[in-house]
């Protein structure tokens, strides 16, 4: 029965995993490039983000075709509408990585006003959140989705720390203001990426149960 159709749904899940891998990678690459003040590596983020945008369009087209041609119902329908939502969140995460790359290019060779510690930690956690949320999507695992959403709290705490540190540096030395503001934005971009992951987790719960559940 409908093996062809089920195969196409599996293909979409697989494509989302591939898109998710790319997003994980550019989050990692964008923060590494910042840490190493590597302008060339930052420029490459733009190219990778274009690839993510293309993937988003390809997956969206596949979902729309299935809706038009196969008239999916019940959970099959929810898997496809969830896929359509997830790719938007992933695409936004890619844009945030580009924003981080842009900041790196702007800072250029200017020495850091403080060593970067918490920002790379935030990047590690958000990257892990992206990976685990997509695992939860493919495995339809609600418990994992909830666990990932809880990780958002760690990211929020780190973000607060980043802001606090930078504010105290500005208080001591107003000439650090410009770079401090830029680094605050980097923290903000990572915090937003984690929020998008939480969105994905909420959608996974809806996909599996058909019920809306707000987490965090």
């Amino acid at each position: 029965m409908r093996e062809h159709f089920f195969q196409k749904i599996d293909d979409i899940k697989h494509d989302i995993l591939r898109m998710g891998n790319m997003v994980e990678r550019i989050i990692n690459d964008s923060v590494n490039a910042l840490k190493n003040q590597d302008v060339e590596a930052s420029k490459r983020i733009y190219i990778d983000d274009d690839k993510i945008d293309t993937m988003e369009h390809e997956i969206e087209n596949k979902c729309v075709s299935l809706l038009a041609l196969q008239q999916p119902l019940a959970k099959d329908l929810r898997v496809i509408t969830t896929a359509l939502r997830i790719i938007i969140d992933l695409e936004r995460m890619g844009d945030h990585a580009v924003n981080i790359a842009k900041t790196t290019i702007e800072i250029g060779n200017e020495p850091f006003i403080k060593p970067l510690v918490d920002i790379p930690k935030m990047a590690d956690i958000t990257q892990e959140m992206v990976k685990l949320s997509l695992d939860a999507f493919v495995k339809e695992d609600i418990n994992l989705a909830k666990k990932v959403a809880e990780m958002d709290e760690e990211v929020d705490k780190l973000y607060e720390l980043v802001i606090k540190d930078l504010l105290s540096i500005i208080a001591k030395d107003s000439s650090s203001m410009n770079q401090a503001a830029k680094l605050m934005f980097v923290g903000r971009f990572l915090e937003r990426i984690a929020d998008h992951t939480t969105n994905i987790c909420e959608r996974i719960i809806y996909m599996v149960t058909g019920e809306y559940e707000e987490i965090n």
Binding site: M1, R2, P72, L73, A74, K75, D76, L77, R78, G210
Partner: peptide, 19 residues
Amino acid sequence: IFSNPRDKRTEDYITGRFG
């Protein structure tokens, strides 16, 4: 019935898993 049926047999039928 068509968006979130309660019984697995209904779900399986309407999604083309049997019938």
